[in-house]
Computed example of a mutant assay.
Amino acid sequence: MSLALAQFNDLSQEVAVSQLLICCTSSAWANKLAYARPFADVDALLANSDAIWHDVQTNEANLLEAFDGHPQIGNVASLKEKYRNTQDSAAHEQSGANDAADDVLEALAKGNQDYLDKFGFIFIVFATGKSAAQMLDLLLARLPNDRATELANAAAEQNKITRLRLSKLLGNA
Rank of each mutant, 00 (worst) to 15 (best):
A109S: 14
A148I: 08
L105Q: 04
N85H: 07
L64F: 14
T58S: 03
A51C: 01
F126L: 06
L116V: 13
L63W: 14
V125L: 15
Q134K: 15
D99R: 05
N85F: 00
D68S: 15
S78W: 07
A77Q: 15
N62T: 10
P144R: 10
A91L: 01
L136W: 13
T149I: 09
E93G: 00
N145L: 09
R37C: 03
A61N: 12
Q113M: 07
L105W: 05
G74C: 05
P144M: 10
D41W: 02
T149M: 11
P71F: 15
K32G: 01
D114E: 15
A148K: 13
F67W: 15
E93F: 14
N62M: 04
D99H: 11
Q94W: 01
E60S: 09
N98G: 04
A100F: 03
D55W: 02
F121Y: 11
A66M: 10
R142N: 13
E106R: 14
N48T: 03
D114M: 11
A66P: 09
E81Y: 03
A90W: 00
A36F: 02
G69D: 11
R142Y: 05
D103C: 01
Q72C: 03
Q113I: 07
N85R: 13
D88W: 00
P38W: 05
S49E: 02
D103R: 05
G120T: 10
K82P: 00
H54E: 13
N62F: 05
R147P: 04
H54R: 10
A127R: 14
G111N: 09
A51G: 04
E106W: 01
V125F: 15
N85L: 09
L79V: 09
N59F: 01
L151Q: 15
A61F: 05
A77I: 09
L45Y: 02
S89F: 05
I73N: 04
F121D: 06
S95Y: 00
R147C: 10
E93K: 13
L105F: 08
V76D: 06
L108S: 06
K130H: 14
A152Q: 15
D102N: 08
A34L: 04
F123Q: 13
L64H: 13
F121W: 08
A97Y: 05
E81I: 07
D114Y: 04
W53T: 03
E65P: 07
D68E: 15
P144G: 10
K82F: 04
A127N: 05
L63M: 15
V56S: 02
Q94V: 04
I73G: 04
R142G: 09
Q94Y: 01
S49V: 00
A97C: 01
V76N: 06
V56H: 02
N145F: 11
E106I: 12
S95H: 05
A90H: 08
F119E: 14
Q72N: 09
G69I: 09
F123C: 12
